[in-house]
Amino acid sequence: MTQSTAVVPGGRRVPRNVTRRRVVSAVMIVLTYLAAAAATLPLIFILANLLRQGVGSLHWHFFTSMPKPVGEEGGGMANAIAGTLMLITIASAIGLPIGIGAGLFLAEQRGTRVANVVRFLSDVLNGLPSIVVGIFAWQLLVRPFHHFSALAGGIALAVMMIPIVARTTEEMIRLVPVSLREAALALGYTRWRTSLSIVLRSALPGIVTGALVAVARIAGETAPLLFTAFGNQFWSTSPGQPIAALPLQIFSYAISPYDDWHAQAWAGALVLIALVLVISVSARFATRSRYGRGHD
């Protein structure tokens, strides 16, 4: 290997073992092709399994029926689907405003020590293992009240959303030219109006995308819900009660020993993935702004 080194100090070219060097190069390049192929294989396998197993168990009553005991035909995850939507709603209602507000702060105070510290801590929060968020929410919101609740689950998910939303909001606001802010101020806009109705408004498509990415990410989270939302075999949309969620239902069916439930878990996983993908795809569309791109 070292023998074939072509570049030596001083930049002199050493034409040694040219054929061997060519072969080594070709082999290594082929290896990167193989690595790329291998890196995409798991996704293809997983999606293929999901489609094959999931589509078969996916009937319309999957969306409309409640879970049934083992052995009974039919049954669905209506309560889990509703629960997941409810949890997403709670998490977004809390996480989006706080995340966007924090992002505005980071963008407007950029360069100050406070902003740097908050940005850094936001990244730390983003790297927090989801299970730690789960036990934290349990300790804070479940333990003192002695019962699980949708609200606790939603807040746990909001904790995961905030840093993502804050950072994308900051990035998007940074893309808005300073000149636009100045133009609004010069027109007699107050600072808060400038920030909200000019700067934030201009950055909105990107912020919506970031928000949707955050929602897509928390939609499939399970660990923060294990000891907070907990799951529920029955229909519930009460924020104070334990609530079912698609990921929780998939989890409990997957670790069960029954083929029927495995089939339900596949169907649930397919629905969950579809939900995540729909949100992600709408995120792409959200980036298209109302008036398109003109001059500049």
């Binding site: 030219p177 000149s179 133009a183 010069a186 007699g188 408004r201 201009s202 702004s289 109302r290 008036y291």
Partner: peptide, 22 residues
């Protein structure tokens, strides 16, 4: 400052139309 700027208008070096508005 807001009142001052309402009475004294300003136009900048680069055009700054608000991109989200008609």
């Amino acid at each position: 400052a807001v009142t001052v700027r309402r009475h004294i208008g300003m136009v900048f070096q680069r055009p700054t139309p608000f991109p989200t508005m008609s």
